[in-house]
Design a binder for these strands. Structure first.
Lengths: 136, 136
DNA sequence: GTTTCTGGTCTCAGTTAGAGACTGCAAGCG
DNA sequence: CGCTTGCAGTCTCTAACTGAGACCAGAAAC
């Protein structure tokens, strides 16, 4: 289980090294706590740095800066700096970011439809409410 | 940014508390490093505990046990114990788990189509290769 | 003069994931 | 008989990651 053999199972029969599976690489990003939320906030309109912080109250500046940086590196958002004083930085969705949101549509619908039943099951199953919930 | 006002933005205009947004709750689960991989491994056939460990070589027993537990709590997989010695435990997909995989289809297609371009951008953008990648 | 705003970075603590040892029992092998 | 293997997990220790909040410098409002 610790030997990292290649040719492991992956999504849609990807048979290469696990770390190179494209779906894994993409989901690792958008599956984190903030990326998707940021993308969906930017979907309606471009936002400035602190405006994003206000729109998503429980993100820290540190994670906001870091997540924006990786989203930009992935070409999902753009970043533009206007040389005013103080310089104002604006972020917005790229075409690729928008296409990701579109691809997410069915999943979002599924989540909305299934959420009540899942939450009921989760409650019935016991206290396992957040994360992987290993016993303390 | 630290005041947790409710009525924050969420997916598809969810306006309640961020923690109750159904899409967030679902994505927090399937977005983690192992849930989706496990689900897709179980899609083809039911597996026993150690068989899953062999199919996904780089998961630790600890995360395997924990992730299976939460997937079961969410009603995405079933778990059946046969009282042999030693008892053998089998896991498989439920109908709900299968419906999630179906909903994931467009996202998987998108990821496959976009992965080369994203990886190229990521390389061009610099060393930000894994995770949020805050500078050391 | 003090506060507030701009976009971030830095440091410190707390939480979390991963590695690997450990449990107890049964079967296979020499 | 003794050794190893496999079963399904759990336990502990350490490494990594996350969140909270201080800090920067300049400008505008009060």
């Amino acid at each position: 289980m610790t030997t990292k053999t290649s040719a492991a199972v992956c999504i849609d029969g990807w048979s290469g090294d696990l770390d190179t599976c494209p779906v894994r690489q993409v989901l690792d990003r958008i599956g984190d706590r903030w990326s998707l939320l940021l993308l969906l906030t930017l979907k309606d309109a471009p936002h400035r740095f602190n405006a994003l912080g206000r729109a998503i109250p429980d993100i820290s500046r540190r994670m906001l800066a870091g997540t924006l940086k990786t989203l930009e590196a992935d070409g999902l958002i753009w970043r533009s700096v206007e040389a005013t004083t103080p310089p104002s930085v604006t972020y917005g969705l790229t075409a690729r970011g928008l296409s990701l949101i579109m691809a997410l549509g069915p999943l979002v619908e599924w989540a909305f439809a299934q959420a009540p039943a899942i939450l009921a099951d989760r409650r019935r199953a016991g206290g396992a409410v957040s994360g992987v919930a290993i016993a303390p």
